[in-house]
Nucleic acid binder design. Structure first.
Lengths: 121, 121
DNA sequence: TTTGCTGTATTAAATCGCTTAGTACAGTCA
DNA sequence: TGACTGTACTAAGCGATTTAATACAGCAAA
């Protein structure tokens, strides 16, 4: 369900957090479904429970999951989290477009670079 | 000319490197112009010369600058570096667009989010 | 040549974030 | 009660970043 790559320079807790965020926001994990327990996932991925806990804590702060002490963590109705993520992504998008314009690409070139999977230049 | 923010979680050498890369690729620093010396810039920014040196080394590897031992570092004709950067940015762009599509945004919404500086939803 | 700049290389130490390990406590449910 | 759940805490190791202090070599001008 979630994969962790030790050669990835990003911290493990970020990989876990981003992996679940994607699964949740894309609807693969529907609202209300139960997240694996901290210890269970830690054993499955062979990493420390504290690292999983940190990922879960951030997902909770983002509004992606809702934790109930003693019961577990559950995917929450994530309209707010989805809106937050859309906002982040559009901000990234605008920054990239701005810099590409500064590098001399016009709007048509940028659009074609988005639509076509082919590399430019 | 370059600003460093200690509260930025990114390493200082990355901030320096990215700052100069932007100045060079955008044409603010024209090809052939002299970069500040390692010691001079370190004193100006109040950081260690080794940190500046690391930023310069990476800029040289990217092809943005050309260093001549004993003389200094100079902005190089950076067509290859510009192409590299364009490639990085279009890759970022495509990844963001892909995720936004997965979040339910259609192409028209994405395009308007790029064109208009206003936040959506 | 001497002086003063330039980049480069090296080592040691301090700091910080990430990760692991171990332990402990409290809530939930069969 | 017992077995699970999340949570909290401390201690330690590790690696990257940064600083510090030197040292060496190339270039240019007085």
């Amino acid at each position: 369900m979630i994969q962790v790559n030790v050669r990835d320079p990003r911290p493990i807790y970020e990989q876990v957090r981003d992996g679940f965020r994607r699964l949740i926001l894309s609807g693969v994990l529907p609202a209300g479904s139960k997240m694996p327990s901290v210890r269970e996932l830690a054993a499955e991925l062979a990493i420390n429970p504290n690292t999983i806990q940190r990922a879960y804590r951030e997902l909770e702060l983002e509004g992606c999951i809702c934790t109930v002490p003693g019961r577990g963590s559950f995917v929450s109705a994530s309209d707010a989290a989805a809106a937050l993520r859309r906002r982040e992504l559009t901000d990234e998008l605008r920054a990239a477009v701005k810099e590409l314009r500064a590098l001399g690409m016009n709007e048509a070139e940028i659009l074609s670079a988005i639509r076509e999977g082919t590399g430019n230049d």
